[in-house]
């Protein structure tokens, strides 16, 4: 409390700061005079306040009763309306039960308990003498342990203490398998049919009219062992555009079929499904962070936080007219990762 000399009402009151001198300041006038409340002077007001508090506690009792009534006598009958009514009644019952007690107690405190403000002196958190003593004690402890005099003991202990927690980290190794190249391929394979999500029925090229969009999963995915993990990488959006408006780059001319193209639905930003297809502008929009991809430029990013085009799934048509994949994706789908390369 070395710097605590300022602020006491009997000396200078405002704080002495460099440049201000602390001489020409107002003195603290002390607490303003106490103003009595209505309930302090008027016995009728006091009585009224007392009744109000009791009434509030009574409202709380009614609230509790309402809760029990709602719980036992509003049976749920599979309709949403009934559930809504029960929820409302349970909630309002609880609210009245709680607010009745709370408002009642506070009203009691405000109107009937003494409202004179009291003053208490602050004390220093600790005494400086104590601090010095504590320092001395710690010094003695360290001294008697000899840790300062025996660096060999100290250093080996530090080494041991640094190493000892490592097993606690290592033991978490089995939380999961190593990534391997799991992220680099998907469920898709050459010749696999494109099927509707979620039914898994195959899609004919003639089904896909201009302007339409199909949400696609690979054939057999619904029966796969790790269905959700595979689906999280394999989902595809299938669209048909006027072939004129597609501008495939060299080597990708035959990845579509007569204006039908298939792109990974997993955003290259952080992996939300990019499923918003604007059939007139030919833009794909991610609803999570608004990355926008242009189908006319092979799903190049034209807006938003994604940095990389959506991977395209090369497709073809089999003998029966069903759409099939020519191969797996040619690059990893979804968000980037360190080993992506």
């Amino acid at each position: 409390m070395a710097d605590n000399s300022h602020g006491s009402p009997d000396t200078s009151v405002t704080v002495a700061t460099p440049g201000q001198g602390g001489v020409d300041t107002f003195t603290n006038p002390g607490l303003p005079p106490h103003r009595p409340r209505l309930a302090d002077t008027d016995p009728r007001a006091e009585k009224r306040a007392e009744r109000q508090v009791a009434l509030l506690f009574f409202i709380s009792v009614l609230g509790t009763l309402l809760f029990f009534f709602a719980y036992f006598f509003i049976p749920l009958n599979d309709t949403i309306e009934r559930l809504r009514l029960q929820n409302l009644a349970l909630g309002l019952g609880t609210a009245f039960a709680m607010l009745g007690i709370g408002v009642g107690i506070v009203h009691w405190a405000k109107t009937l308990m003494p409202d004179h403000e009291l003053t208490e002196e602050r004390h220093a958190v600790t005494d400086e003498k104590d601090r010095a003593e504590a320092e001395q004690i710690v010094g003695t402890i360290l001294d008697e342990s000899g840790i300062k005099r025996r660096p060999l003991i100290r250093n080996t202990l530090i080494g041991a203490a640094l190493l000892a927690p490592l097993p606690a980290i290592a033991i978490f190794r089995d939380l999961g398998p190593l990534p391997g190249d799991a992220l680099k391929h998907t469920f898709w394979d050459a010749g696999m049919r494109l099927t509707r999500d979620p039914s898994g029925t195959p899609i004919k090229a003639s089904d896909v009219t201009v302007g339409s969009a199909f949400h696609v999963i690979p054939e057999g995915l619904n029966e796969a062992e790790n269905k959700l993990e595979e689906k999280a990488k394999a989902v595809v959006l299938l669209m048909r555009l006027d072939p004129e408006s597609l501008n495939p780059s060299e080597g990708r001319e035959d990845w579509g079929y007569d204006g039908i193209v298939a792109y990974s639905k997993i955003c290259t930003h952080v992996g939300c499904p990019v499923a918003l297809y604007e059939q007139q502008t030919h833009h794909l929009l991610c609803p999570c962070h608004q990355s926008t991809f242009d189908l006319e430029q092979e799903c190049k990013v034209i807006f938003g936080p994604a940095a990389r085009p959506l991977p395209q799934l090369p497709i073809d048509v089999d003998d029966e007219g069903y759409l099939i994949a020519r191969s797996d994706f040619q690059e990893p789908v979804g968000p980037s990762f360190w080993e992506r390369g």
Partner: peptide
């Protein structure tokens, strides 16, 4: 404020208010 200083605390006692 008036009556309040850096070395005191002005208010209501824990019990009851």
């Amino acid at each position: 404020g008036p009556g309040r200083t850096n070395t005191n605390v002005v208010g209501y006692p824990v019990g009851p208010v």
